[in-house]
Amino acid sequence: MKFVVTSKGDETSNTLAQKMRTYLLDFNLEYDETHPDIVISVGGDGTLLYAFHRYQHRLDKTAFVGVHTGHLGFYADWRPKEIEKLVIAIAKTPFQIVEYPLVEVIIRYLGGGKESRYLALNECTIKSVEGSLVVDVEIKGQLFETFRGDGLCISTPSGSTAYNKALGGAILHPSLQAIQVAEMASINNRVFRTIGSPLVLPAHHTGMFKPVNDVDFQITIDHLTLLHKEVKSIQCRVAQEKIRFARFRTFPFWQRVRDSFVTE
């Protein structure tokens, strides 16, 4: 089996990553940064996000596993003291594959031209570079509302515990094939009105966001911040691709939520 180890870059993570690489080579696994069967991320959830974007071109062939060197994460669930156990599991145990949905973002431009397509593991956010964001929100081709406010966050179920939660969005179990649209400081008065609640769209529903005025957009795809000009529409839906996680033990999602947000 071919593997690669990615690191957050700090001394602790680098040391741990090098140790895992050495152990796995001792088990006669092949280190391959180009075509890995498994990507081991050492650091935190952010480190795994970087790894996901690095290898998103081969999601159907690569599985991910995360080791956290800081706070317990939703993607990085192995502890440093467990690396020997993880190494043996990778080298000797057939692992279970668990797939999580992604959000597909397609940006189209005025005057035609090639559209831009992105995949996000956590979320996509849409903001205006200057002033309030004003967009027509369409669901399944039908106008739902005209949104006015700071911006919109479109998240995956696995990303629902991140920025989406800070915006008052619901926490969705990662097994659900859906995306969630949460508002950022919407404007609601006698003239302007939005739904004021997060929307959960199933896999067969598409959300389309069309600018009402001529502005530049700041769009984030997970940790990436992008500037887009002359935007005609931004389309978001559940992607056909999925991220694949290598599971060597149970992954109690609701226990992870409780440990992260409820218990001291």
Rank of each mutant, 00 (worst) to 15 (best):
F251S: 12
L72D: 04
I234E: 02
A17G: 08
E30C: 15
G141I: 14
A182V: 12
K19L: 08
V191A: 13
E30F: 13
A89S: 15
A185P: 02
S160M: 07
K19G: 00
E82R: 07
H68W: 04
F217I: 06
R21G: 12
N164W: 04
T125D: 08
N213W: 04
T69N: 05
G131N: 07
E264C: 03
T69Q: 12
A246L: 06
I187H: 01
L176H: 01
V42D: 00
E11Q: 15
V231W: 00
T220K: 04
T15P: 00
K2R: 14
G9P: 04
E11R: 14
T225S: 14
G44E: 02
F74L: 13
F217S: 08
C236K: 07
Q218F: 10
R148C: 02
C124P: 01
L49F: 01
Y50W: 09
G207Y: 05
V262S: 08
F3I: 06
F64T: 11
I83D: 08
I221S: 01
H204P: 03
G9E: 07
D60P: 00
A89P: 07
N14K: 12
Q18T: 12
D32S: 10
V129S: 13
R117E: 10
P252F: 08
E264M: 09
G43Y: 01
Y100C: 04
K81T: 13
L48C: 04
V134H: 04
Q255H: 09
D214V: 08
H68C: 05
G112E: 14
H68S: 08
L121Y: 07
H228K: 12
A91I: 04
Q96E: 12
P174Y: 05
L227C: 11
M20N: 01
R79Q: 14
G113R: 11
C124G: 09
G70L: 07
L25Y: 12
I234P: 02
N14P: 01
N189S: 15
F147W: 11
V87P: 02
H35M: 02
E183N: 11
F95S: 07
I243L: 11
L24Y: 05
